[in-house]
Amino acid sequence: MLPKRATNAMRHLPPCGGGREGGQPRPGFPVTLFILRRLLTFAATLFVAALIIFILLDLLPGDPARFILGINASEASVAALRTQMGLDAPAHERFFGWIAGMVRGDFGISATQRVAIGGLIAERMAVTLPLTMMAMVLSMLIGLPLGIVAAMRRGKPADTGLMILAQTGIAIPNFWFGMLLTLVFAVALRWLPTGGFTPWHENPGAAFRGLILPGLALALPQASILARVMRTALVDVTGQDFIRTARAKGLTRSEAIWRHGLRNAFLPVLTILGLQFAFLIAGTIIVENVFYLPGLGRLIFTAVSERDLTLVRSATIVLVLAVTATMFITDLLYTLVDPRLRRQNA
């Protein structure tokens, strides 16, 4: 027979829900407050980045006006151009003038191309942004399933093989992948163009096809990293107690991993995904040159070599904006996926 009551502690204490054992009910946390705070951090990051970019480019030796007019220009005409470009003003005025202009959507005029920088960047972003997105999606489509397969078959030949592949993928730089892919799919098989870009409004299909190989070249190293992270995260989660609990409820091991493991394993993967976006954006500078794509990376590359500092400055800040925005979104996603963070972040 079972004893009705092993002890008589219940008489002395309220039932749980209140009192000592109950703990305080934790109120739902104000998500808006968290978003607000992250937005402030976001703005502060952008401001500091702008300041650093401004100072670095301002410190560079050489006079942009002299560079534009050439070595033989007279002192007077150089001075005139300096005034026209606003280079005479004190540094803080120029800095805040630049910031205020950007807030209004006026990024200034490119010294070398003589067009509004805003339009120039927008035009180039129409290439770089889809390229980055495509690389992002491709790296997830390739990396995550491979990581899951490797984790599910841990210690078996499939796992070892995939991880060797991933190791190789990380070691090989993306421009080399670019050249290899071009050789196979463009030169030998003639499935896709070797390079260049048809604008979206002319032929969206051709534009898309033009981004496949560069996207793949960008994606492969990242997919390798993702596969490794996904595998490790899932293997870690598989060993956790709640997977055993799920199996105790009547799930098989793989069912438990699908239902309970994946979502938990996705948390570390999310962190990597946020960081990867920054790497992908930086990677476009090289890949756009390899594939001869008119994107933001190429624009910056040309602007640097032509000493078009106004353009470099504004294009860089747009990249910083893209990366910071991704971090912001990653943080929000984190809070969405993990209820534990909702409280701590408040």
Partner: peptide, 28 residues
Amino acid sequence: DERAMARLRGRHFGMVFQEPMTALNPLM
């Protein structure tokens, strides 16, 4: 068979483990 054992376990056994914090799925 793993599946048959899992179903048997689900229907006939109830299990309580030591550490309730880690034994519950934190996201559910």
